[in-house]
């Protein structure tokens, strides 16, 4: 499909790049994402809740576990449209 002439070599990250223990305090985006997932979890049926306290999440790795559980629960509920209460 491609000629050797038009192949561009990909970079390789350092092995030290991976750090799931990075403090959540260092990333405002994931902090906000956790907050939003906590809001979404409030609207899940009780049997689908994670029983994880989002306030106790301290690292990126812990956040990813929580986000994964809520995402899977949202899909497991079958995508039934549900009314969100206006706070």
């Amino acid at each position: 499909m491609s000629t050797p002439r038009n192949i561009v070599r990909l970079p390789k990250p350092a092995t030290s790049a991976y750090n799931p223990n990075r403090p959540l305090a260092a990333n405002a985006l994931i902090r906000a994402q956790v907050r939003h997932f906590a809001e979404a979890e409030r609207h899940l049926p009780p049997e689908f809740r994670t029983h994880i306290d989002p306030h106790k999440i301290e690292t990126e790795g812990e956040a990813s576990i929580y986000i994964r559980k809520v995402t899977e629960a949202i899909h497991a509920t079958g995508g039934r449209p549900r009314k969100v209460q206006v706070p």
Binding site: Q33, S64, V70, I74
Partner: peptide, 16 residues
Amino acid sequence: AASSSLEVVNLLQNQP
């Protein structure tokens, strides 16, 4: 799923 979407409240929870 562990990274998921930034559109969780607006779209994912209503239209997975």
